[in-house]
Every structure is written in C-alpha cells, then in structure tokens.
Design a protein around this nucleic acid. Structure first.
Lengths: 224, 224
DNA sequence: TATTTATGATAGTATTACTATCTTTGCTTA
DNA sequence: TAAGCAAAGATAGTAATACTATCATAAATA
C-alpha cells in the first residue's frame, strides 16, 4: 500500500500552488536542496531555475520572492512536525510522557518521510536549524503575521504549551516555555555543530545530549 | 569630568579601524540607525553613504561588506554588555544575586551610554533582538569563528556560565543554560513585540515579565 | 617642502530581483 | 476532430545591489 501525506498551505504564501504541478513540486524539492547547499543569502531564483532546468520567470509564477518561499518551506515543516507530534502522542495518557515525546520530536533529526515525495525532511530539518528564524526576523513580520503566515509555528507551540499545562495546570509560562523548547532545540543544535564552546555538548556532538538538557530544563521548571 | 569607554575590536572585522577617524565613527553611528530603520536585508552601503554624506567607496575602505559590519556592531554590543555585567556584579558576594543581576542586564532595555559618543546603545539593543543572530547564521560561520569574530559573545556566555557554576558547582549544563538565557532574553522580547501569541506577555508587553520568566526558569533548573 | 594618509569624485562590472511579452505544448471539452 | 485554455518555455529588459578601480585633492606629518 502506498501512503501520501498532504498538508494544506496558506494561499497567501504562493501565487500558484506548487503542490499541484510537476514544476511546482520540483521547485520545492530543489529549493530545499539549494538553500541547504548555499545558505539562504546566496540562494537565488536564477540558480534554482538552472538547477531545475527551467527559467527564472517560471519560478516567479509560483512564488513572489525567495523570502515567501522560505516561509513556505518552514511553515510546511512546522505543520508536518505538528502532525507527527499529535499522531505519535495521541495514545499516550501520561502527560509527562507526552511532553517528553514531543521534546524528542523537536530535538532529534528526522529521516526522510516516504509519504512526501517532493520534500526531504532530514535536509529540511537542517534548514530549520540554520535559516528558520530568518522567516520571521524581518521588518515586515507584522504584515506577514496578519496574513497568518506563521500559524503553523504558533499551532505547534500551542500544542506543546497545552502539554505543559496538562503536566502542571498552575504553571505560569506555558507559551514562553514552549517557544523556549522549540527555539533552543534548534539553536543548541546549531551551536553544537558550529560554535561548540557555547554548549556542553561540544565533545560528543550528539543530539541525545540536547534532549537530556531540554528535558532537565523543562521538568525542573514545571515541577509542582 | 568626562568619561570615555573604549572597546578594542578584533582587527579582522574591519579594513580600517572605524574608531580612529571621524568618518569611521560616523559609519558606526549611522549604520546602527539605518539597520534599525530599514532592517538588515534592506540596508545597503549605498544608502549608508548617502545618509552620512560620503560615497560607497568610502565605506568599503572601512568594511569589506555589510555582513562584517553587522558582526562588528554585534560584537561591540556583547563586549560592552560583558563589561557592564562584570563591573556591576563585582562587588556582589552572593552568587545568586550576581546571576540575578546578570539576567537583568540581558533582559532589560538599556539607555544610551554617554561614555560612548558614536554608539547609541538603546537602538543597538533593538538591533541585537531583531538582527543579532544573523551574524552567525551563515554558511561561513566556521571561517568567521576561526577568525575569533564571535569571541565577545562567547566571553559573555562564559561569564554567565561561571556565575551559574558558582550557584551550583555540580550543575551539568552551565554553558547551554547560559546561551539559553542570552538567546531567550532576546527572542522572547521579539516575540512579545511581534508574535505575542508565542509568549505569556502579550497583554502587558513588559520586559519585567520576561525577566520573571527567565529567573523562574534558571533558578528552578539549577536548584541543588 | 616633500610625502604620506584620508577622503572625494567618478566610472564601470557582474549579479540580483524582478516584470513583460510572445510562443509553444498539451490537455479538456464541445 | 477542432477550439480553447492553462502551464511552461523563450527571450528581453530594468533598476538596484555589491562590489572594484582609478584619479584628484586636502590635511596632517616628517
């Protein structure tokens, strides 16, 4: 049996829906590869077009500019992650176990999900680590936010925040702690890879250490 | 009596030392204003030159490119902050009080320091919040790191890490907790301003709430 | 007075970030 | 089977960006 997983994306993110055509899917597939390879600053629609074997104008029919494309692929990632977190925790009754599992999904690398043919999730995870925050660290964040472009990120954080409240209904900072988990899962990973003196995981360079740190932090904080 | 505070910057950050000439000081002063006004992506040496009343070529004599200039001003900020943290905590004996004071310096807005005529620290603080992480989130972070460009950031985190260890010598993650404090002090501030649903401070929008959250987090975590 | 140093003035190039237009291909649907 | 439409290809063009180079000039210094 074959599976396929479809994530409905906000229509303001694109001009033409990339999921509905061959070229569109290629744009997503190759842009993930190219952004990972060159970094977002050095990534251009010209280079993307050449890699795909189409023209610049072809890309512009799908995305207004490269920043919208970055928001698209990050938003896709957060939606996919929320889906995974929810499906893999729904049978767990103990809220502490649920939260533990969620943290694990955030802090651990993923393997390519075979149900999504035109997205390579393990590379996407690396992009989130290195480029993810550039999606919102702009002067037009307020307008983008009004267009709901960051909803998937907020939804994921909201799920984590609710798990935190299930563990301790009196805890005062469930949202801020949720974003702390999500952000630090990625920032600690980046620092571990590139600026190891800023972490305690420089020698082993293992994601399981980040996981241990985050669990330690979260469960000390919300302990009743 | 007049005071002046001088911070020695890494020579690899510039081509000609901006602190030693009038034009150099103007470049720092105006670039801080302009980056804050336009955001880093929309900031160009052309616009900076026009604002100062000099030419593009004039700016290029001081800085290789706008990214080096960003690293320069962020590095300056971290050095200045480390200096403040150290001087204002050196007479405090209780390590918990010391750490508490340090967190306060990180999470609270500053007023313009009159001892540094060509740097506006309160605007610089906003730049750190919105643009700071772009200094290291690049494909050339490893080369920049080899050139010691991030040393001021590391030094500051190291100071905080040591205060953490003074509070609890057995604590396992002093470096990662230090970077968590520094990063989250700024990220929570950005979210509070622009994506308030991601924090618990959306209504009041007050920095003192961020401070309370960070203290709560840190002292629960390192409690013996 | 000679010389170095900083700045100004001007010009030029490759690349980026688009926009516009016209043609072709291939798939519906009457 | 023909007409019609949507997607994609081909090509061109523009303003801005990110530089590099050169030559002149003014001020500081030796």
């Amino acid at each position: 049996m074959e599976y396929s997983l479809n994530i409905k994306m906000n229509e303001k993110l694109f001009l033409r829906n990339p999921e509905q055509t061959d070229l569109g899917k290629k744009i997503i597939l190759f842009s993930i590869q190219l952004i990972h390879e060159k970094g977002f600053e050095d990534f251009t629609f010209k280079k993307l077009a050449t890699a795909i074997g189409t023209t610049e104008a072809g890309i512009y029919r799908y995305f207004e500019n490269k920043h919208k494309l970055l928001i698209y692929i990050t938003a896709w990632y957060w939606s996919w992650l929320e889906y995974r977190v929810i499906t893999y925790t729904e049978n767990i009754l103990d809220p502490v176990e649920k939260l533990r599992k969620a943290i694990k999904f955030l802090a651990t690398s993923v393997e390519d999900d075979i149900r999504t043919s035109y997205v390579n999730e393990s590379i996407l995870h690396q992009i989130i680590i290195s480029e993810g925050s550039k999606a919102y660290l702009t002067k037009h964040v307020n307008e983008d936010n009004q267009d709901q472009l960051f909803k998937p990120y907020k939804d994921l954080c909201s799920v984590i925040g609710n798990y935190i409240l299930e563990c301790n209904p009196d805890y005062k900072y469930p949202r801020s702690l949720a974003t702390t988990i999500v952000e630090m899962a990625h920032i600690q990973n980046f620092f571990m890879q590139h600026l190891p003196a800023l972490t305690d995981f420089g020698k082993s360079k293992s994601e399981s250490n980040i996981l241990d740190f985050l669990e330690d932090l979260v469960f000390h904080e919300i302990k009743k």
